[in-house]
Amino acid sequence: MRPFTYERAASAAAAVEAAQAPGARFIAGGTNLLDLMKLDIEAPAHLIDVGRLPMAGIEATDEGGLRIGAMATNTAVASDPLVRARFPMLSEAIVAGGSPQLRNKARVGGNLLQRTRCAYFYDPTKPCNKRQPGSGCGALEGLNRNAAIFGASPSCVATHPSDMAVALTALDARVETLTAGGGARSIPVADLHRAPGDTPHLETALDDGELITAVVVPPAPTGGQAYRKVRDRASYAGGLASVAVAGGRLALGMVALKPWRATAAEAALVDGADPAEAIGRELAGASPLGRNDFKVPLVARLAVATMAEARAAANGGGQG
């Protein structure tokens, strides 16, 4: 790691103020940032530890949803009785990611801001527009089995690795932030991540020094919930694809540089299409690259199975 200075923020306001310093970054769980700093992919000059800010609470909102503090650990959210009761799919998505040790450290805010696990991003000897703008994309014509099938660009075909974010997207959650100027913003999770375009190094809608303070989940839609993830081993692995279903809402994971809200599929469902037809309509817009062609049928089949699980759950059948 390059040298950096470190401070523990006394308050959220102090944190965003400190973040004005050049090269400053927030750190909370640190599981992704330190991973990348060790590889010299991230080299912040100053770390602001926001991990102990009193923003870890999980509370019911008056509307019947939840407000989850950004510093809540993944484990805390997954284990929370309210989360398990109202948004079981969110709990299940969280425990589908990482390991218990990582989930004990990782925080909700940081989880949303995870960077891609693309092998070419992780190898500093390879071109990567996200790591080094203008250097090219090693994955585009490389071993891109796990590359995106939606929303990619010639500059970047990486995927977003978060499970939780996929669930939150299907749940229509929003993030609340504190901006550098001290103002507050509310951004839909679905809009938090940018499409790569020709600037894949610009990853989110957040401004410099803007801090996620909470995630607000609206009341669960009617209908069942389910989350399924397919990966190369049974646990402790990134996914090849995942599907989150909340009522009539559908989000797909590991298929794009952001959690992919399957709006075409949702619209088809509203129009009365059956699940296979609906997801087919979404996948009509997929652009696989060859080595990741399998993601199209995989998502098609997984989505149908996950929708069936959600229906069964709505009918009191529990988890499939």
Partner: peptide, 22 residues
């Protein structure tokens, strides 16, 4: 890099990867 668990310790009673913490 938090990919194996060999560094697992308990911090305030909670298991974590000590390699991914400053």
């Amino acid at each position: 890099h938090g990919q194996c668990g060999a560094c697992t310790v308990l911090a305030n009673g909670t298991r974590i990867n000590a390699c991914l913490s400053l």
